[in-house]
């Protein structure tokens, strides 16, 4: 089934490859509590050190999983655009 043209399919392929690599890595960095990403971790108000640690810990883990979820969706996107690419290249050959 053809949904989009060859250019969109290629665009989707490139974007999802990039997305998979970067999001998997970002997830890993969140998982190991990279300090460089601390500004991206959502933390609400806290009053004590322990509370801060638990909150930031939860935030890091949540973001890591979110990154991996997004990466998984990008795998789906990759397969979808790969299929579209294949369909397009076959239809262009048959002309």
């Amino acid at each position: 089934m053809k949904i989009c043209g060859p250019k969109y399919a290629l665009c989707g392929l490139v974007l999802s490859t990039w997305g998979i690599i970067q999001l998997v890595l970002m997830g890993a960095f969140f998982f190991i509590r990279s300090v460089a990403l601390i500004e991206d971790v959502p933390v609400s108000e806290f009053t004590s050190l322990n509370e801060f640690y638990t909150k930031i810990d939860a935030g890091y883990t949540q973001n890591a999983f979110n990154c991996w979820i997004a990466a998984c969706i990008y795998i789906v996107t990759f397969l979808l655009s790969g299929h579209q690419f294949y369909v397009n290249s076959r239809s262009s050959l048959s002309v």
Binding site: E39, D40, N63, N66, W68, A70, Y74, T77
Partner: peptide, 24 residues
């Protein structure tokens, strides 16, 4: 990109998927 990383729930992943594309 930070807009995709604010959510403390699983649906943050889906939002991140969209935001990442925009960011890219």
């Amino acid at each position: 990109m930070r807009n995709g990383l604010r959510y403390e729930n699983w649906y943050g992943g889906v939002i991140l998927w969209v935001v990442f594309a925009l960011w890219a």
